[in-house]
Amino acid sequence: MKFRIFTEPQQGATYDDILAVAQTTERLGFDAFFRSDHYQAMGDGDGLPGPTDAWTTLAGLARETKRIRLGTLVSSVTYRPPGILAIQVAQVDQMSGGRVELGLGTGWFEQEHLAYGIPFPAKRFGMLEEQLEVITGLWNTPAGQRYDFAGEHYTLVDSPALPKPVQARVPVIVGGGGAKRTPKLAARFATEFNLPFPDFADIAAKFDGVRAACEAIDRDPAELTYSAALIAVGGHDETAFTRRAAAVGREPAELREHGLAGTASEIVDRLGTLRDSGVECVYLQIMDIYDLDHLSWLAAEVVPQLR
Rank of each mutant, 00 (worst) to 15 (best):
A190N: 07
S227N: 07
T242R: 13
P196Y: 02
A190K: 03
A245Y: 04
A168M: 11
L195H: 07
A201H: 14
R211G: 03
S227R: 10
F189N: 07
A212Q: 14
H236F: 08
A253K: 13
F189R: 11
T225E: 13
F193C: 05
N194Y: 05
E251W: 10
A186G: 01
Q167F: 10
K180G: 09
D202V: 09
P163D: 12
E192W: 01
A232R: 10
E238Y: 06
I217R: 02
V233E: 11
Q167A: 04
R181Y: 09
P252G: 08
T239P: 03
P252M: 08
N194V: 09
G262N: 08
A205V: 10
T239A: 15
L230I: 04
P252V: 00
K180Y: 07
R188W: 05
A190W: 04
A161I: 07
E238Q: 13
S227Q: 10
L230S: 11
A187T: 00
P160K: 14
L162S: 15
A245L: 08
P221E: 10
D237N: 12
G259E: 10
A161P: 05
K206D: 11
P165N: 06
L162G: 13
A228K: 05
I217Y: 00
E238C: 00
R181W: 03
A232T: 15
E223G: 05
S227L: 02
F207S: 06
F193K: 04
A247K: 10
K206W: 09
V210A: 06
A216R: 07
C214S: 01
A161N: 12
K180M: 04
A261G: 03
F197N: 14
R211F: 02
D220K: 03
K164E: 09
H236D: 15
T239C: 03
G177F: 08
R219D: 11
A228I: 00
K180N: 12
R188K: 15
E238I: 05
T263N: 05
A253G: 08
A245H: 04
K180V: 12
R211E: 06
Y226S: 09
P198N: 13
T225V: 13
A190H: 01
G259V: 04
S227G: 09
T225K: 11
G175K: 00
A187V: 00
G175C: 02
K180E: 12
F200R: 14
F241V: 08
A190I: 01
G234H: 00
D208Q: 13
F207W: 03
A186M: 00
H258D: 13
A213K: 05
A229T: 15
A245P: 02
G249A: 09
R219W: 08
D158R: 12
F207E: 06
S159K: 10
A245D: 02
E254C: 00
P221F: 02
A245Q: 07
P183E: 05
P160W: 13
V210N: 03
R244W: 03
A261Y: 12
E192M: 09
E257M: 12
E192K: 06
A216D: 11
G259H: 10
E254D: 14
A204T: 14
E223Y: 01
D218P: 00
R244Y: 00
K206L: 07
D202S: 15
P198H: 10
D199V: 12
K206R: 15
T239W: 06
C214G: 05
T239Q: 15
E223P: 05
K180A: 09
R244K: 02
L260I: 06
